[in-house]
């Protein structure tokens, strides 16, 4: 067990505001290999996939924890290729595979289109450690749809770093389902270098018991007409603690760029703690930026309305939470995933 100070914000604020980074105690297991990886695709001949289990050491990363990888996956979608199906990557933890430090690199060449679903599962009750990295590069006109789901069990530590870069006219839709794990520490960094590039990030988080959620998202607009959207919907119950740090950084020259960011946190218990830092940094005149955050109890008027229709308090609460998540869930367009998320909400 050791104390770590991780996930520093792109710009510091006063130390006593206690949000520049997160202090966590982690029990990092000894290096071990990982075997339980599956990739599901019917288009294996159209794309390039490279998998290996080399140990690569790396110190420089946004989360700030030294890494030694035990798995890496590299996927290339060649120029002009469109893959309609969802390419599914699955990492399943079990007692023999309880340590995963992986690198996933996804490259979409010009005009390529693809959908990915990346899942981390650990159903059983044992502690596992995950410190992953997902890097995406979209070349001109490429389009990608990424859904990352964390369904790890509630004793696990999850650290996850996502980086991406978008060239001209590239479009990236990104969804993160942050449900499992005791410590959920994630970092998302997107560089919109291309003109007309667009990145929309949608996130659902769920915190319970003594969960610690520290999410640190940063989008930088460089290209003209680039668009950065961050939409985060969350629920906290028991003594869960969440820090949301979201930054939209308009760099000089990103004329006509648009950046919008919002976070909405429903608190279901007196002991739950919600901290948010929605930063807007602006070094360009001709942009449109806005952010909004809100936290508070579940909407009483809505609760009452639903209960007058004969639905119990608990059920009504769950309905409202599901309704809040609905836009994001519908967009994933995956029944299996939707059911799994609803199941987790029902367990609140």
């Amino acid at each position: 067990m050791e104390k770590y100070i991780l996930n520093e914000t792109p710009l510091r604020t006063a130390n006593n505001f206690d949000i520049n980074n997160i202090e966590v105690v982690l029990d990092i297991p000894k290096y071990k290999s990982f075997e339980n990886f599956n990739i599901y695709t019917e288009n294996i001949e159209k794309i390039k996939v490279e998998v290996n289990q080399n140990k690569i050491s790396e110190n420089e990363n946004k989360i700030g924890l030294e890494r030694q990888t035990n798995y890496s996956v590299k996927i290339i979608i060649p120029e002009n290729i469109t893959i309609e199906e969802k390419i599914k990557l699955e990492f399943n933890f079990d007692e023999d595979n309880a340590f995963l430090v992986e690198n996933i690199d996804i490259l979409l060449e010009k005009n390529a289109k693809a959908n990915f679903e990346i899942q981390y599962n650990s159903e059983e009750s044992f502690s596992n450690f995950h410190n992953g990295q997902l890097n995406i590069l979209l070349q001109e006109n490429a389009k990608a749809n990424i859904v990352v789901s964390n369904f790890n069990n509630n004793q696990s530590d999850n650290l996850y770093e996502m980086k991406n870069e978008l060239k001209d006219n590239a479009t990236l839709k990104y969804t993160i389902i942050e449900i499992g794990g005791k410590n959920k520490i994630s970092n998302y960094y997107s560089k919109l270098v291309g003109e007309n590039s667009e990145n929309s990030l949608n996130v659902i988080y769920l915190g319970k018991e003594n969960d610690v959620i520290d999410i640190n998202y940063n989008m930088e607009t460089y290209g003209k007409n680039s668009k950065a959207y961050i939409n985060v919907q969350g629920v906290l119950t028991d003594s869960a603690k969440k820090n949301f740090k979201g930054t939209i950084d308009f760099k000089e020259g990103s004329k006509k760029a648009i950046g919008k960011e919002n976070e909405n946190c429903i608190l279901l218990s007196k002991q739950a703690k919600s901290k948010s830092l929605p930063m807007l940094l602006c070094h360009e005149e001709d942009v449109e930026g806005e952010h909004g955050v809100s936290s508070g109890k579940i909407d009483e008027a809505k609760l009452f309305y639903i209960m007058t229709k004969g639905i119990s308090y608990d059920e009504a609460r769950k309905l409202i939470i599901k309704a809040n998540f609905n836009d994001i869930i519908k967009n994933i367009n995956n029944n299996e995933l939707e059911n799994r998320i609803n199941e987790k909400i029902d367990q609140i």
Partner: peptide, 19 residues
């Protein structure tokens, strides 16, 4: 630059922030 920290430590509040 807008750098606001919003720190909500109980549930029965109405907290909204816009920029």
């Amino acid at each position: 630059d807008t750098i606001p920290v919003n720190d909500v430590q109980t549930d029965e509040v109405e907290f909204s922030h816009e920029a």
